[in-house]
Design a protein around this nucleic acid. Structure first.
Lengths: 251, 251
DNA sequence: CGCTTAGTTGACTCTTCTCAAAAGCAGTGG
DNA sequence: CCACTGCTTTTGAGAAGAGTCAACTAAGCG
């Protein structure tokens, strides 16, 4: 039996338990579903557009992103952080309509498709928990759409920072009001639908106004409540029954 | 037994059969799942944010939209047209994080939550078909995100027009290269994250350049291939194995 | 026939993009 | 240890796209 801290499903379990507590046996089932673990360097693709999805990828460490390239520019449509399943839903589709790439160095656990199917068929409770997490991912996607549609750049970025702090907390990867953000400004810009130049200016203004300190990939929020108000950040869409504790349990 | 044309599930069946043919019995199961049918006027809410989702809504006629209101402005995040299920996925969430409103006059069939659950448990093939359609909806959401992030207003609108033509075809609600678009420019603007004024100017330019004729809620595309190229419209994300025929079967 | 809502037009402002270039930083190989 | 290289961050200036405000027209409805 692995210690909790060593488990590759630690973050996944922490996330799912925001939906409902898992039994020791259920946790074991998840852990045992993993067939192998791989490392990816930043910039490498984990799954590529056009491929037929064969297995499911669980992010264990690092950040990954869903993206598409249109007319030369890249659009990152979702961030995956530890505990996130990259492609659990797409076994029904004949081919990926987007790619999944490692945004930072990543550790990725692979779960064969049939083990997921088996869990979904035989573990009613786990099945519901996994479906819940898929629905939350979709809710996040909708909120990103809203951000792009009607929030100006500054609020958009502030909103993203708030979201990623909470999501980091959910899997215990935060420190008080800061979290590790292993992205370049270019990647963040590709996420927010703006140029890296403008992204840079927005970040500078957030720094100058004393909202954040962002240095060597550590994002520190100086006054979360103020930033949340300015960004109109309402965490309802994350569907966390109880919001995670202020302080992370690890890291 | 109802004639095909009278069935309230006609469009839904047409859509699902792009995934895989349904047996007569399966079609019957779907039709019988409906408990009642209601009319909504344009502007009315079908489901409201904060509500606990109790039953599933199938759009039979008219257009509906998912939306959120942020800081006074509205963002429409998805269109539902006949054959679309509004909220099949959200039975696991405690409350709606967005509203669903009738964009035009709508006919909506209600399916009690437990009948959906029963179908999902007992009709493996229908379950898969429904999951497929959910995945396609999510793929559409991602493509809208991409549009907002990196397409300029003109391409964004052109892309939407291409998509809605294809989706109308999928359920047989088109005529050659035109379809019924029962929205106001304000609603379209709320969808594309721009002001109604700018929307108006974009539409005018599309008309002036001979790309479309849009009059009394009929959207006519004069040269689909040209528009698709200009909009960089690649229908892969709609996951239609075979693209629907040029000419709709009804209307 | 007046009322309300949707569509249209113009002038002006502001956000964001583009192009261009410099400065910082990390890794590489000599 | 240092020059070189590639990538990211930063800064500046001008251009373009999209928003705002204001008004006017057209169309549906009671």
């Amino acid at each position: 039996l692995l210690l909790n801290e060593e488990r590759r499903t630690r973050a996944l379990v922490a996330k799912l338990e925001h939906f409902s507590k898992l039994s020791a046996e259920e946790k074991e089932v998840l852990e045992n579903a993993i067939s192998r673990v791989e490392q990816y360097a930043a910039g490498e693709d984990i799954v590529r557009e056009g491929q037929r999805p064969e297995s499911v990828h669980l992010l264990v460490a690092g950040w990954a992103g869903r993206y598409k390239v249109v007319d030369g520019s890249r659009c990152i449509m979702a961030y995956m952080i530890p505990g996130d399943l990259c492609d659990i839903q797409i076994t029904l589709l004949s081919r990926m309509d987007h790619s999944i790439g490692a945004l930072s160095a990543c550790t990725v656990a692979t779960i064969p498709r049939e083990r997921i199917t088996s869990i979904r068929d035989n573990q009613k409770h786990l099945d519901r928990a996994l479906s819940w997490s898929t629905l939350v991912d979709e809710a996040i996607l909708r909120e990103w759409l809203v951000s792009l549609a009607l929030r100006p750049a500054r609020k958009r970025v502030a909103h993203l920072i708030c979201e990623m702090l909470i999501r980091s907390r959910t899997v215990g990867l935060n420190e008080e009001n800061s979290f590790h953000l292993p992205l370049t400004q270019i990647q963040i810009a590709d996420t927010m639908g703006m140029t890296a130049i403008h992204m840079n200016r927005v970040l500078q203004r957030l720094r100058r106004t004393g909202a954040i300190i962002f240095d060597s990939h550590r994002m520190r929020i100086l006054d979360f409540d103020r930033l949340a108000i300015e960004a109109e950040f309402d965490p309802t869409y994350l569907h966390l029954e109880k919001l995670p504790l202020r302080r992370g349990s690890a890291n």
